[in-house]
Design a protein around this nucleic acid. Structure first.
Lengths: 342, 342
DNA sequence: TTGTAGGCGTTATCAG
DNA sequence: CTGATAACGCCTACAA
């Protein structure tokens, strides 16, 4: 079953390619009769325009690229889901690439997408990345570009974020309101902006409540995994037996801590209250159920795509576009792991 | 920053486009001198071939399509991860689409990919799909095609699967070995092959152990969600208070059942042993830890892509390709939720 | 109302 | 060793 082209339809009907093309695009200057004939034959032969040729002519592929650290991640898979669906609604397909949290790979993925000439790029940075050359390159080339969640503050592009400082502040304030007096923080790596902001939020909450900040109570993840959460929990409880609360950079890490405490009969929340971040699905099915901060992943995906779409449209029309930042709301979800009193 | 073309390099160097093209592709019939000059200038200008034009000429896009029911799913996100990485290693990019478990959407996604002229398609069927027209269409058009996990048995294409019957049999046998005498099965929807096979495996295990099969002990999911698991658990315990084991189609459903039992102080595994399927991450952090069947998602992704690659290569060379089926091994993972004796 | 011609950027063929 | 020419399939001024 070979591909049908305009040419074939044209020869079959004994007319010119141009007329066929025009007929199919419903140009006004084609007679109803030929129009009907063309459309009928096109349908019969299941004609669809060759997208390679269309891409070449129109210089757009109706395809966008999406780079994230990792799909197997509750938050990111939700964003991916939203972006794919939103893109499809608007006639775009999505190529997905993973940076695997390394700068080197991320650079490569950007290059691949640029060479592929996607119409736009949406991205969430790896832990190692910043406003590096590959990011600047995207903007230098004037490719529509949106960053979400893990962003580079200095990049002059559109962004979709939450207020990590405020969200973290609220999480820690909640622990304090529930009687915690000595709260440890398992933070993310030193580079990513959201880890920095959550850390600042933690500090601010302590400050506001006149709890002295102690650097020794801050533990820094490298891999941000379940295992790290478990290991840090052990370390924390050994180094600071009187700790009564933990704020973890993300649920996965909090779940690791929970696992350690459960196995070692350390009562959560009675002895140690725990709160995570991101509201992973599993958090609500654990024992005890994990308190956390809700991060609107779905909305983030939708907003990211729509910002990109707007920029792509401007780009096409040659209209200048001014990057915007959209900040979405978060809220603390209170479950069992942080309620000391009933 | 405008795009660099062969033409520009040619005019800048005062030579022909043809020579530039050849020089960049390292043809033997270009003098070392011009070759060097061309390559140097090309690098300086950051020339990259216009992929739209290359696609049109070569009739391939080095892009494949992947259709799955849903990315936000432990098993599928792992497969996606593997396919993306494996594809990239081999110079392919991946467009991902979701069927959302409906036939209508799946048909649309197939159409989109066909029109996009991807070089190949990998797919896991929705719950409503079968060897339907859209599947046949892919093969009629001679587009390289691989199905994995949720397949249509009758389709004459390559497949990557597990032996669902055997895996389910082993899971149920394990429950029986642990003293279960009255085992309920929360099965998947009636249509998908893997739900059918797991159901058959359940029946065979009962039969082998001379446990009478009772249709009333089989509960059929529609949405295959956490909520359904929870609701069926309630229903099962009410209708059959003497039930002592449950085999669930997938971990998510098993986790729902576990949640219900936990909340209602029904002891797992003492009163009811539970085993799931697929080994979702969360299963190992629950209380009690969920026993399950390991499904090699990562390997499945890799094998799927490589089968597709083989077919794409044959396709390109015009060599006939005979579809193959690869069956991967599974194993029962024994955790707390199914061990009645210690 | 229909058709001709040119071009999008690359590659392959063939002639010089 | 180099280059002119055509072709991939589509679209659109412009001409007839």
């Amino acid at each position: 079953m070979k591909d049908i082209t305009l040419k074939e339809i044209a020869t079959k009907l004994g007319i010119s390619i141009t007329t066929v093309s025009k007929a199919l695009k419903n140009y006004p200057d084609v007679s109803e009769k030929t129009k009907r004939a063309v459309i009928e034959l096109a349908q019969k032969l299941h004609y669809t325009p060759n997208s390679f040729a269309v891409n070449l002519r129109t210089k757009e592929s109706k395809t966008i690229g999406l780079i994230i650290p990792e799909v197997v991640h509750h938050f990111f898979s939700n964003v991916v889901n939203a972006i794919i669906n939103e893109a499809e609604k608007n006639g775009y397909l999505v190529i997905i690439l993973q940076s695997n949290e390394t700068l080197a790979l991320e650079k490569k993925q950007v290059e691949l997408l640029i060479n592929k000439r996607v119409d736009g790029i949406i991205m969430s940075l790896s832990n190692e990345s910043n406003n590096d050359d590959h990011i600047k390159e995207i903007m230098n080339r004037n490719i529509p570009f949106v960053m979400f969640d893990k962003i580079a503050k200095l990049s002059k592009c559109s962004k979709v974020v939450i207020d990590d400082q405020k969200a973290a502040f609220n999480a820690v304030q909640h622990l304090i309101d529930n009687g915690c007096k000595k709260i440890a923080h398992i933070r993310g790596p030193l580079n990513p902006q959201n880890a920095i902001d959550r850390y600042i939020g933690y500090k601010k909450a302590l400050e506001k409540n006149n709890i002295p900040f102690d650097n020794k109570l801050v533990y820094t993840c490298e891999t941000v995994t379940f295992e790290e959460g478990r290991d840090f929990a052990e370390q924390i409880i050994n180094e600071h037996p009187d700790i009564d609360g933990i704020f973890a950079i993300t649920d996965l890490v909090a779940v690791g801590a929970l696992a350690y405490f459960n196995e070692n009969k350390i009562k959560v929340p009675e002895q140690v209250a725990v709160i995570g971040f991101s509201n992973w699905f599993m958090s609500q099915v654990l024992t005890p159920k994990l308190s956390t901060v809700n991060q609107p992943s779905h909305e983030m995906g939708i907003e990211s795509f729509n910002l990109l779409l707007e920029e792509m449209n401007c780009h096409k029309e040659g209209i200048p576009f001014t990057p915007r930042t959209i900040e979405l709301e978060t809220n603390v979800i209170i479950r069992e792991s942080s309620i000391k009193f009933k």
